[in-house]
């Protein structure tokens, strides 16, 4: 059974239609790469999944349950953790407070997050606003993990980070895949790194899902046509 399933999703920003016909399936324990050029609807799809934007057409289910009518906080409690684009930690809380404020019962706690990102333990009493971009990204991932999700959504998790920090983030994602068994939906532009973790991929083009399949089946023709690489 699919953990997450989107069928024929359409969504609007006011009068402007952003998603036309998005299909997406994700099984438990699977890593799915959601790909596409800028402005094709990747982050809008994430907003629809997390109920930060209401869709107008189509169906949306998580673990067999229709989540279309749930508010954001109930979707999070159902088991969807989001690492948003641009990180957006709570700037006036310390690292520890950011984690504690988000904590929900489950396997993931502060100690496990610190194990995954030892740098957070070193910075635990530092204000989130004073962290480097990479550390903020680690905190954003840690904060999402503290909600003990069954599905982790990473929206542009390595964007704008230094290469060394990017490697750390990708290593953490690989570790999460191997050890936690949680499903991961990852949005990123780096094909090389995505190839190391992703099982399957979905490509969006102008608000429509135009390609879906095994990540290994992505041919140069497809990436050239839809991703411009």
């Amino acid at each position: 059974m699919n953990l997450l399933q989107l069928s024929h999703i359409s969504a609007f920003y006011g009068q402007s239609q952003a998603l036309f016909d998005v299909h997406l399936k994700l099984k438990a324990g699977e890593v799915l790469a959601l790909m596409g050029r800028n402005g094709m609807g990747k982050s809008t799809t994430v907003k629809v999944i997390c109920r930060m934007l209401k869709h107008r057409g189509g169906t949306l289910s998580f673990d067999g349950q229709n989540i279309a009518d749930l508010p954001s906080y109930k979707v999070a409690r159902a088991g969807i953790g989001l690492v948003p684009e641009g990180r957006r930690c709570f700037p006036n809380l310390t690292v520890l407070e950011n984690l504690v404020a988000s904590a929900r019962p489950g396997n993931w706690d502060g100690a496990k997050v610190n194990e995954l990102f030892p740098r957070l333990a070193e910075r635990k009493n530092q204000m989130a606003a004073s962290l480097s971009g990479g550390e903020q990204q680690m905190l954003a991932i840690g904060r999402a993990l503290m909600t003990n999700p069954r599905l982790l959504i990473l929206d542009e998790a390595t964007e704008g980070l230094a290469p060394v920090v990017r490697q750390e983030i990708w290593a953490a994602i690989a570790q999460l895949k191997q050890e936690s068994g949680m499903a991961i939906l990852v949005i990123d532009k780096s094909l090389k790194e995505l190839a190391t973790v992703a099982d399957r991929a979905v490509i969006l083009e102008k608000g429509r899902s135009v390609w879906a399949g095994e990540f290994a089946a992505l041919s140069p023709e497809i990436t050239d046509r839809y991703l411009g690489v």
């Binding site: 997390c50 930060m52 508010p71 954001s72 906080y73 109930k74 979707v75 999070a76 409690r77 953790g81 989001l82 948003p84 957006r88 709570f90 700037p91 006036n92 809380l93 404020a101 988000s102 929900r104 904060r143 999402a144 503290m146 909600t147």
Partner: peptide
């Protein structure tokens, strides 16, 4: 600090 963001971590 961020009303929308706390909802995505399950807080009302």
């Amino acid at each position: 600090q961020n009303d929308e963001r706390v909802q995505t971590v399950g807080i009302t």
